[in-house]
Design a protein around this nucleic acid. Structure first.
Lengths: 159, 159
DNA sequence: GTGCTGACTATGTCATCGCATAGTCAGCGG
DNA sequence: CCGCTGACTATGCGATGACATAGTCAGCAC
């Protein structure tokens, strides 16, 4: 019923993990509502400050602050671009680390659609190739779907 | 390079999504560091208040508050139990909605291990069945791995 | 060089989240 | 019924995050 633990983790008693844990570090970097919503819009293809702040629905000050943090975290990069007849502007684009956050974003989206339903209903994800619904799930490199009770957590401190 | 949008979402201009978005609702319910860390410990099998608050490393007041919120959100349930020779206590156990958060937690863990590295190294996930490393990824119901550029987002407001 | 627009920055205020310390409360052992 | 322990609750304070309003700044159009 719970994740299996290995090595030092298995008998850590009640000592806190602190920043040994990747969840903690991730949440400290990008674990707030506004950052996630900015990422959502980045995945939707929004790149301009104006568009991002309006679509997320926060004030410019907050958007500027969060975007600065996301750039500092290496999740977004500021790239100069110029449209014809326009001055040079900066686009916020997802870095590799940013793109790697897609499972986080989709997992939050799926869960919210199912367990925090709204009058608007869930937002379905689909595969462009075959049209089938898409889910965020655990798979091992051998291709097996991994249910919770078959998940083993190693410890980073040994070996 | 970005998620493809369908229907009303495709041309929403710069209007905010607000709580039409499952990401937003999820983040409002459980989108803070302490809640995620409490869930981490719940997945590790911790059920008792004392254990949870110590392992997460927050004060009792904060743990009590967050646990109350998680119970209200339907993610944890308080269940009475009695050990022999002990008085009745309450265990915090994951509900079905709570278990459904596993992909969120593992996605955060994986990302942190890779892109917010610590001196302790990443925490590897493995499949108990075959020993292979496990990843949180997007799959369609036909079994295809879905890369970002093949992901289509529907809109909840039509049909 | 004036105006316009996109992209911020500044200020002030309020709510939320965290910490630290201290207090409460229930019930079993003695 | 006294004390201990686990599980909270209360209070006070500082940091963070949000909002609203207003100001700045760069550069192209004219």
């Amino acid at each position: 019923m719970t994740v299996q633990l290995e090595g030092r983790l298995a008998s850590r008693g009640d000592t806190p993990l602190g920043d040994r844990c990747g969840i903690d570090r991730t949440m400290q970097l990008i674990g707030n509502r506004t950052a996630m919503l900015l990422l959502r819009e980045a995945f939707h293809g929004a790149t301009r400050f104006d568009s991002l702040h309006k679509r997320v629905g926060v004030t410019e000050a907050v958007a500027a602050q969060r975007l600065k943090e996301l750039v500092a975290a290496g999740v977004l990069a500021k790239e100069p671009y110029r449209e014809p007849g326009q001055r040079t502007r900066h686009a916020y684009v997802l870095t590799e680390a940013g793109h790697a956050l897609l499972p986080v974003v989709t997992a939050l989206l799926e869960w919210g659609g199912r367990y925090a339903p709204s009058p608007y209903g869930p937002t379905p994800l689909a595969h462009a190739g075959c049209g089938e619904p898409v889910h965020t799930e655990l798979r091992c490199e051998a291709g097996h779907a991994v249910p919770e009770e078959e998940l083993v957590l190693g410890t980073p401190l040994e070996g």
